[in-house]
Amino acid sequence: MQKKVIFRGVALPVALLLPQLLITGIFFFWPAGQAVWSSFLREDAFGLSREFVGFENFVDVLTDPNYLTVVWNTAVFSVSVAVLAMAVALFLAVQADKAIRAATAFKTLLIWPYAVAPAVAAVLWLFLFHPQIGIFGRMLNNAGIMWDYKINGGQAMTLVIIAAAWKQVSYNFIFFLAGLQSIPKNVLEAAAIDGARPFRRFWTIIFPLISPTTFFLLVVNLVYAFFDTFGTIHALTQGGPGLSTTTLIYKVYVDGVQNLNFGSSAAQSVILMVLVMAMTAIQFRFIERKVHY
């Protein structure tokens, strides 16, 4: 039975909710509203006049070939980050779940990267892969592989993917480990007795049983790659060379803050907002279906 506290009147509940509502209002709804409003306006280059242009900004954005390149970049980047971060985390979680000795130390080490600020993490990767001063960068060049992410777009993309995925591995690891540990030992033992070897046990028992965790993490990782990797990209490549590591969120910044094209930038933010709402909706619908298998 669920016990609910029922307040009489309106004043007290409103007073209790007010701080939260104010924060949400000031820091979310107000700017979001501003963005939506700005997306229908066009401003001249000096910011002296504004006029209402309806959906023109959206039309311009969606027909811009550069924007389509950026959409493609974002897709490649997000899917790669999510898959890489999850695959590595799952592998490590399986190892940690097996480890009996030194398990705690192992877990602590794996959780650290999550506490590192994106820019700091990016600088760390920069030091590793800088073509002249980075250890791996120099090694690659000495080995005869032309490595310079400042010139080669593919290499730049690879670098930001690795840096962004690295930061997310810890988070995924914690969830996967919890998922693995919630599988009853007896079920795996029963499978072993039924004749399943470790590899088969993993794919027929463990993997299906952690699929709810996997799906949850997939959405979280995609959202992370879409929206939370600005710092990493900014510190490593600034979206370059050319547009090769510019993602949707990075382009919003470039167009709005650097190029001062507020209308276009606002329209892009609105598109992103719709995307994140769609993703959240998918996730909520899934979580509401409480039974997963």
Partner: peptide, 20 residues
């Protein structure tokens, strides 16, 4: 030998059925 190679079957107290 591994459990898989012993050709035995076991019934657990918790039944240990495959939930999915």
């Amino acid at each position: 030998l591994e459990p898989a190679d012993r050709d035995i079957a076991m019934v657990f107290q918790t039944y240990a059925l495959y939930p999915h």
